[in-house]
Each structure stands twice: as structure tokens, then as C-alpha cells.
């Protein structure tokens, strides 16, 4: 039962991911990205990580991709960008990425074949995730927080110049 669900979710995730790459319209690609993220959340859930599954939807599908879509809406690209995307997706484009992915795929097959990957293990609740994050991996969490703070300050700095110009215009 769980295995069937896993394969269904995995197939949906792969198909949606392929569509993300090949869509010409950026908004359509983003909606497929949401579908792929939802499928990955289902996989997390099946693997016994309900907390990670919920966060996958709340953070990635619910916040980050919304921001992408937000920017796409703000820029309002229209038909011109679709023709440009079509130029970018000509057949010769696929050779380089295809070789690199093939190498990675080969490595993955080798690793799976050569080592015992073990089973999914026991379900991990929110408390266990919290203990791992703020115990064992505290340093990594703090470093990520510093990185995000830098991004926040940078965004504020860029926005402030715009606001100052606006204020000068107004006065």
C-alpha cells in the first residue's frame, strides 16, 4: 500500500518537475513546481516525517513559490518572454545538462546497488525534529539565520534607496 502510494507520488513529482523545465510560460512552470512540491511532501509523509511534509507545504509551496509567482505577476512579462523562452529551449541546449544528469544518475545507481540503504525507519514527530535542530545542529541553524539576516538587510538597503528617491520626488 505505502509502496504503491510512494510510486504514484514519485511519478507525479518527476512528471511535474519535467513540466517545470519545459513550460514556456513562467506562471505555468511555477504552478507545476507547486505540484512537484506537494508530491514531495507526500513522499516525506510516507517516509515517516510528517513534520517535514507539513513544512514543505507551508514554507516552499505556501511562501517561497508564492513570492516567485508574485514577482512574475509584477513584471507581467507577456508574449515577448514566451518567444524568448522558446529560443532558450532549442534542442542543442539539452546536451550539456543531459550529460551531467546522466553522470549523477549513474552515481546514484552505483550507490544504491553497492550499499545497503536500509529501511525508512520510525516516524519522526515535531518534537524530535525540534530537538535535533536546536541541539545537535544548533550551529547550522544559527549560520542559516545569519545568512537570512544578511539577505534581509540587503533587501532593506536596496529598498531604502528607492524610498529615498520617492520621498525626494514628493517633497
Amino acid at each position: 500500500m505505502e509502496l504503491t502510494l510512494f510510486y504514484i507520488a514519485a511519478a507525479v513529482a518527476i512528471a511535474a518537475a519535467a513540466l517545470v523545465v519545459t513550460r514556456l510560460n513562467a506562471a505555468h512552470a511555477l504552478v507545476w513546481l507547486v505540484v512537484a512540491l506537494l508530491a514531495i511532501a507526500v513522499i516525506f509523509f510516507l517516509l515517516g516525517a510528517p513534520f517535514a511534509a507539513a513544512l514543505e507545504i507551508v514554507i516552499y509551496a505556501g511562501a517561497i513559490v508564492v513570492l516567485f509567482l508574485f514577482v512574475v505577476m509584477m513584471l507581467n512579462l507577456g508574449r515577448r518572454s514566451i518567444t524568448r523562452e522558446r529560443l532558450w529551449l532549442e534542442p542543442g541546449m539539452w546536451i550539456g545538462p543531459a550529460i551531467l544528469t546522466a553522470i549523477l544518475f549513474g552515481e546514484m545507481i552505483f550507490l544504491i546497488a553497492s550499499s545497503d540503504t536500509g529501511d525508512a525507519g520510525s516516524p519522526i514527530g515535531p518534537k524530535a525534529v525540534g530537538e535535533a535542530l536546536f541541539g545537535q545542529y544548533l550551529l547550522a541553524v544559527e549560520l542559516a539565520a545569519m545568512l537570512l539576516l544578511a539577505a534581509l538587510v540587503g533587501a532593506y538597503h536596496l529598498g531604502r534607496r528607492y524610498l529615498r528617491d520617492r520621498r525626494e520626488e514628493a517633497s
Partner: peptide, 24 residues
């Protein structure tokens, strides 16, 4: 479930897409 509140937050954050896509 053990993630009921998170499920609610997830669904309410997916509802944004309805509004955004409707506008777009």
C-alpha cells in the same frame, strides 16, 4: 494528527494561489 495545526497553516497558505492565480 500530530501536525494538525501545521496542516491548517499549509492549507491556508495554499489558498493564496486561488487569489493570486485569479488575479493573474
Amino acid at each position: 494528527s500530530n501536525i494538525a495545526i501545521l496542516f491548517f497553516l499549509a492549507m491556508s497558505s495554499l489558498a493564496v494561489y486561488g487569489v493570486l492565480l485569479g488575479g493573474l
